[in-house]
Amino acid sequence: MTDSAPKAGPSKPRLGYIGLGNMGAPMATRLLDWPGGLAVCDARAEALEPFTSAGASGASTPADVAAQARIISVTVLDDAQVREVVGGPHGILSTAQPGTVVAIHSTISDTTAVELAGICRQRGVLLVDAPISGGAGGAAQGRLAVMIGGSDEAFEAVREPFGSWAELVVHAGDVGAGTRMKLARNLLHFVSFTATTEAARLAEAAGLDLRTLGKVVRHTDAITGGAGAIMLRDTTAPVSEDDPWFSILRHVRNLGEKDLALAIDLGDRLDLDLPLAHLALAGLGAGLGVENDREDRLAEPSPASTASTTREHA
């Protein structure tokens, strides 16, 4: 265990925070009471004032932060800014002591994280990619999730201080894994947003109130868990029939195919194209690992025929 690991009592390491924007400021605020103390840095002098007034030490450059702190969080805009903060002329590596842990909370390329970790390692510094999920609201409430890519040693060093602003702290794997997990999480997020716009167009074409639909979606997702409710298996491989998940996921598939087919049918009657709904219908079973087999297809009506039958008997 290096000197950067959290220790009991007053000997906890001094923390540093670089980047006090919409996300960084509320995260750093929750570190003001950290027993080892806090050093902060931001390009805007006015961003430092609330922290220095509350007892944190202000720093003019990342190098000044690294001269004081043993665990340093970085929340800046993009890969270029991260590179400058870590390795620039006034960057962290110009003054960091061996054993210092640098955590990059910005969402950057996983290849950038791996590259910078290698450069840091040559100086005896540990770098972790530690992107966050939960938005500004989660930061303000201290309820973020942080996905950490790095060594076991580095993870143990940051777990306790990160728990000051994160409700969920996970070790995703080696350096780069945190960013890859964040990208997979955000893929779901923004594909879901695109699907939401398609659902809104269907609702609008059907003469429904979109705000009311939004209330229903938020209400039921809070109960069911939304898309995350099916992310409980440790593999995406096809599910064998003797697996306890088989009947559950087949039920999800059957309901999903029925409802997607009905939504597509409604869109057809409203002369509205729903491309994501068609993609979802085509790929749902295989994606769940319970693609329709021959017996399923013989025993159950197809989604198209279900929609047709429903329309004929409506």
Rank of each mutant, 00 (worst) to 15 (best):
D234R: 11
S247K: 04
D221E: 15
G226M: 02
I230L: 13
D221Y: 13
D243C: 06
I230R: 03
V217S: 05
V216S: 09
G225M: 02
R233F: 02
L232M: 10
V217D: 03
D221R: 11
L232Y: 05
M231A: 14
A229E: 07
V239A: 00
T224I: 12
D242S: 08
V217W: 00
E241H: 08
P238Q: 07
D242N: 07
R218Y: 02
G226V: 08
T235H: 12
I230M: 06
K215L: 09
D221T: 15
G226T: 06
T220R: 11
V217N: 05
R218A: 15
V217H: 04
T224F: 12
R218F: 02
D234V: 09
W245S: 01
R233K: 15
A222C: 12
R233T: 08
G226N: 04
I230Y: 04
M231Q: 10
P244L: 07
G225R: 06
D234I: 13
P244W: 02
S240Q: 10
D242C: 03
T236K: 04
T224C: 07
A227K: 01
H219Q: 13
S247Q: 05
H219R: 12
G226E: 01
R233S: 05
V216K: 07
E241M: 07
A229S: 15
F246S: 00
D234N: 15
R233Q: 09
T236L: 13
M231K: 03
V239N: 00
G228T: 09
W245V: 06
S247W: 00
P244S: 02
V239Q: 00
S240P: 05
T224A: 13
D221Q: 14
A229P: 04
A237C: 09
F246D: 00
S247R: 05
V239G: 00
L232N: 11
T224L: 11
M231N: 09
V216M: 09
P238G: 04
A227W: 13
T236A: 14
D234W: 15
L232P: 01
A222M: 11
I230A: 07
I223R: 04
D221K: 11
P244K: 04
H219K: 15
K215A: 15
R218L: 10
S247T: 15
A229M: 10
G225A: 08
D234C: 01
M231L: 14
A222V: 03
D221C: 11
F246V: 06
L232I: 14
D243G: 00
A229Y: 07
R233A: 06
A237L: 14
